[in-house]
Design a protein around this nucleic acid. Structure first.
Lengths: 337, 337
DNA sequence: AAATTTTATGCAATCGTGTGCATTGTAGAG
DNA sequence: CTCTACAATGCACACGATTGCATAAAATTT
């Protein structure tokens, strides 16, 4: 157990050759004779020789790892993104170090530190809800490490980003709600300093305006967690006249919203429509099944990872900031008319 | 951008010292004078010197990474386990390389290869449903790399494992169902060559026997995916007399089962009870909320990672195989009487 | 047969750190 | 004033792999 990996030297000693010859034989260097090559390659196979990654990376000073910072792992959307990142990293032979900030500012700062200590070549990050100060992200850039934000981008930092079209996602959803006959659409949003929340709010407002429906501040609340939803939704159901639709910032809030609406005695979607955001697995198991905006997390992950790897390898020629936008799709199920 | 990290040599050159002196000064070696130490340490701080991990690891030949193979990332239980692994790895200063086999045998084999190529010090693995041949896992052991299985263990390989008490989890759930008045409990299981599936089946059968209820093979089906459930559940609802409870191998199947039971016109839990396994987030949004067996994935992840790290660092003194069992808890909600 | 080219291999340095041993300088002891 | 002891630093090598250059041996040319 814990057997030492065999090295070039071991093979060299065995065959009474120099390490350099062995190295060249394995890499098919033209100056090596056929016999030596086959001999070396056979012995290498026999001993299951694997070049030491560390030594190689040290020599070329080309660490092949990238870091990821996600606010939450146990979360449909982010695990979808992670799967996309993972696939693309594997394709490019990059290793991944994953940190999760748990929506906590201090842990996010520490994650950046960890990743820079590990000397990753680049970082993919989505900021926590609690983050309002960005110097740790600036440190990444100052350190000469590539940085690509995804989804929860950080407006204070000048770097590449991949986002979804939050504005149009929200606009189309609310537009659909209105076209299906809703007039009092409530918006359960998130902290407005997050661009994703703010953009969705604007999409929501503009959809109302398009149909000449006045924006009613009493129908707009910050409610991005189950706990908040449990407080806010019941109170909104007492407004007179009651909202005839809820457009929610995520599926969890939408699903719990739906429960509370039902237990308050309203029918979905006849009395009140509900629309979520993400189109996660839970949209299939609510009753009725939940209409939601698909965020295509997998594609976002792939796109972000691809962009980062291209930057690292100098294949991304565009000099300025690259911003990629992933399209959303409204997936209509049974919680809307 | 892409600035080179500063090295010991850089500091040495700047201070007209040798790299060895600088190294010793930073590591507080007694043979270095106070003045030199403070001088070196200040300059190091000034230039934000970080020792090159690769060089260090090469020197000590002590790669600090561990690999993880999960069948699926976008999955409540496995992401919970991952979160636990991640926490413990971070605590021990280990980096994580995560591979996902996507329930596919070939990808699993390739993942093992990837991880061994990366020369990880140990691997945490949960096998895919498709795997019926284990030589790739044996390769890990033969290679001298530590291996700990979690949840979906592989019986063919002689190594440490962390599992949940599937047998008792199932036994207690079915026992509860019977005590609440059910007599015809259906079991929607998984491929019996997976120990988790087999153990749950035995727990199910023994709970029936405890109450002198005959085991009825027609009530036991392999149905571990939503697709299978959509085929099998409707046919089971036509059995006469109809089952009065469904005990399901996972929450997704349970949630969809619940939907189909309702649309077939049965009342839950009055006519038919439903119980899932995992206690994932979706149990909160079904209607009614789903009774389920909590698997404590986070604790499982932490336990498995701790065990692996102890093995790597020689802190686990037990010589033979270590098997840890994580307790389950039945969480009763509204889909059972 | 001598000179030149070709072929095949080894030497040594490199990447960034750490450490045993040798070396330098200085102070105290005799 | 010389010798010893000790403090402070540098040298050289190691970790594993790669690569320019030198070198040895063989094959070819003149």
């Amino acid at each position: 157990m814990d057997r030492r990996q065999i090295t070039l030297k071991d093979i060299a000693r065995e065959l009474k050759l120099s390490p350099s010859t062995v190295s060249r034989a394995l890499r098919n260097h033209p100056a090596i004779s056929k016999e030596t090559k086959t001999l070396v390659q056979q012995t290498a196979k026999k001993y299951k020789y694997k070049p030491n990654t560390l030594a190689l990376q040290l020599r070329t000073s080309q660490n092949k790892t990238i870091g990821v910072i996600v606010p939450e792992i146990i979360h449909y959307f982010f695990s979808t993104v992670l799967a996309g990142i993972q696939e693309e990293a594997e394709k490019g032979n990059y290793n991944l170090i994953i940190c999760h900030s748990n929506e906590n500012y201090e842990r996010e700062v520490k994650s950046v530190e960890t990743l820079l200590d590990a000397q990753v070549r680049g970082i993919l990050a989505s900021q926590s809800k609690a983050t309002e100060e960005f110097s740790h992200f600036q440190d990444i850039v100052d350190n000469g490490t590539h940085l690509v934000f995804f989804d929860r981008i950080c407006t204070g930092i000048n770097t590449d980003k991949v986002v979804i079209d939050d504005y149009w996602g929200a606009f189309n959803a609310v537009d659909y709600l209105i076209k299906s006959g809703c007039r009092r659409v409530a918006f359960l949003g998130s902290n407005p300093h997050l661009p994703i929340a703010n953009n969705r709010r604007m999409g929501y407002e503009d959809a109302l305006r398009k149909h000449s429906i006045p924006v009613d501040k009493t129908l707009m609340q910050v409610s991005d967690t189950i706990e908040l939803a449990r407080e806010i939704v019941p109170s909104m159901l007492k407004i007179d006249p009651v909202p005839d639709a809820f457009f929610c910032i995520n599926d969890e809030v939408a699903a719990h919203c739906l429960q509370m609406i039902k237990s308050a005695g309203f029918k979905i979607p006849e009395d009140i429509s509900v629309c979520g955001f993400t189109n996660s697995d839970i949209t299939e198991v609510t009753d009725p099944r939940l209409t939601s905006v698909d965020q295509h997390g997998f594609e976002m992950g792939r796109t972000a990872a691809k962009l980062l790897i291209n930057r690292i390898e100098g294949k991304e020629t565009r000099v300025g900031i690259v911003s990629k936008v992933i399209k959303t799709d409204l997936v209509v199920k049974n919680s809307t008319k």
